[in-house]
């Protein structure tokens, strides 16, 4: 059941990313480029995703996950410099290529060589991250 729900969730996520245009790098870069020919699509995607997700968070109250276990703990209150440094680095990469992790996986089958190169570099970055992060604050990476 757990495995099936994970695959189903991934599948719906991927179809949603494609349908919404988020696997098209010109739409992502078009949204970030407020001084160019600005494309508002990403805001609609975010809005459309946040509404069902907010309902889901409400539904977690007083319940347990379908397959058992427990729901994630409330978000940490501490912001920390890793959050800011990491997000700035991510934003720079996101702007440069117009790809973030979800769409990069979803579009891998039709993205050709650029998609594969980006994916390999992203995996290398993820592999190196715990080492860099430990230097930043002496704490290991969680989740």
């Amino acid at each position: 059941m757990r495995d099936l729900l994970a695959a189903l969730s991934g599948a719906i996520f991927g179809i949603g990313l494609w349908l919404s245009g988020m696997t098209d790098t010109t739409k992502v870069q078009g949204w970030l480029d407020i001084f160019g020919d600005w494309d508002p699509t990403l805001a609609f995607v975010m809005g459309g995703a946040i509404v069902p997700m907010a309902i889901a968070w409400q539904l977690t109250r007083g319940r347990a996950p379908l397959v058992g276990g427990s729901f994630p703990a409330p978000p940490e209150a501490r912001l920390g410099r890793n959050l800011v440094i990491g997000s700035v680095l991510f934003g720079m990469g996101w702007g440069l290529a117009g790809l973030c992790p979800g769409p990069a996986v979803a579009s891998l089958s039709w993205g050709g060589l650029p998609g594969i190169v980006f994916m390999l570099a992203m995996i290398a970055g993820m592999w190196a991250a715990p080492r860099l992060r430990q230097r930043l604050d002496g704490q290991p990476v969680s989740i």
Binding site: N82, S87, F90, G93, F118, L120, A121, G125, A129
Partner: peptide, 12 residues
């Protein structure tokens, strides 16, 4: 871009 996205998302 890939390196920055990989590093940044994991650090953040």
């Amino acid at each position: 871009a890939g390196l920055l996205v990989g590093l940044g998302t994991r650090i953040a």
